[in-house]
Design a protein around this nucleic acid. Structure first.
Lengths: 200, 200
DNA sequence: AAATATAATTAACATTGTTTATTATTTTAA
DNA sequence: TTAAAATAATAAACAATGTTAATTATATTT
């Protein structure tokens, strides 16, 4: 019988991708190296280069998986609520919770340099628009009836993106504020403030 | 005559600090290494270890210099204006301008991991409170007469810190948005939005 | 079953931060 | 002033990183 090369290759790539994901979710980017990935995958580090251009390609592939995972988690909360202010709150909370639980993934999404092509990469834009995708529906409900709804919508979503990312950056990267409960309290309060333009 | 050991040591440390500052402002963190610093300072890389515990100590020392420099620049604009909304705008603009001009310094302040002690370092808190220091006076003028002035003050400054840091992170690290003019436009608009609680 | 193609691994290189050993220099003491 | 001692500067070396080239093992094909 003819061996299924395609299947074999997919499996090999899977082993390395899984290993990368596990390390990123567990120990974080700092612990990620060609050697640690290969060891967990059960192969020599040089084998990786037979299936991926370099370590960066491997990392990029994980970003999409993590985005899906995060989106799923966010979509699992507030399912019984109707779109709007309250639901936005619990969804933002789930979003924040994901990135504090896996600071390595936050780092990967928003902090890490993304060498060479980095910023030109379509992934950069996808990440930029990620929070819009998650919070857009709730915000739209709040602004729908207003004049200049679209503009206000844009303002709120921008502010949400920047605020939440900024807060997570300080908390994950600098432990400011020190206490998690205080951090969550501030985060939720700030989320409320972002909605102000909808109530002006 | 007795040689002034203290002076000699201060000079040596100065050479390395200056070299570090120049590299950080120019090529950025990526280009910074024990070897590149030492070369620019005119000494062997091993000599650095006679004057600093490690490369991190050297880097930390630069943070304070950069903060002073940034503060000076911000204080140089809007001097003829009276504190308030308009002045806050130009000051925020100057602040943003500094960190887009020197993305390596932004990286150092907000992005870089700060190994080991990192977040426990007092510098982490100083950085966290840096925007409060720069924008506090203007915001206070806007909220001074309001009930719950202090609380609102806190909210606005928090939002400013997180928003501006978040925007800079996306722009410097991910080139989102791609165009600088668009970025500045959004930034100023978001700054205005942060002040909303003062006009509620 | 031998020849060939493919895949996996070892060896090697360049670059990083850091430590240890060695050399050069300066200071101190006779 | 010169020999001894202390200090400062450097070179050599190590471990860890990403990556490439050479080599070995394994499949595949004839």
């Amino acid at each position: 019988m003819a061996p299924n090369k395609e299947l074999q290759e997919q499996r090999m790539r899977g082993y390395f991708k899984d290993a990368t994901r596990e390390i990123l979710k567990g120990e974080g980017l700092k612990a990620l190296s060609v050697r640690t990935v290969a060891e967990r995958a059960g192969y020599s580090f040089a084998t990786m280069y037979n299936y991926f251009r370099d370590l960066n390609e491997l990392i990029f592939l994980c970003v999409n998986d993590f985005m899906e995972e995060c989106e799923t988690l966010v979509n699992e909360v507030g399912t019984e609520m109707e779109p709007g202010r309250e639901r936005l709150n619990v969804r933002v909370k789930a979003y924040i919770s994901y990135f504090t639980q896996y600071p390595g993934i936050f780092e990967l999404f928003f902090v890490e340099k993304m060498n060479d092509i980095g910023s030109k990469h379509p992934t950069a834009r996808t990440i930029y628009e990620f929070s819009d995708k998650l919070f857009g529906e709730d915000v739209e409900v709040l602004t729908g009836a207003l004049p200049y709804a679209e503009k206000i919508n844009r303002d709120i979503l921008d502010n949400l993106r920047h605020s939440v990312t900024g807060m997570l950056l300080f908390y994950n990267n600098r432990l400011q504020p020190r206490d998690y409960r205080e951090f969550i309290a501030i985060a939720l309060r700030q989320t409320e403030l972002c909605l102000a333009p909808a109530y002006a």
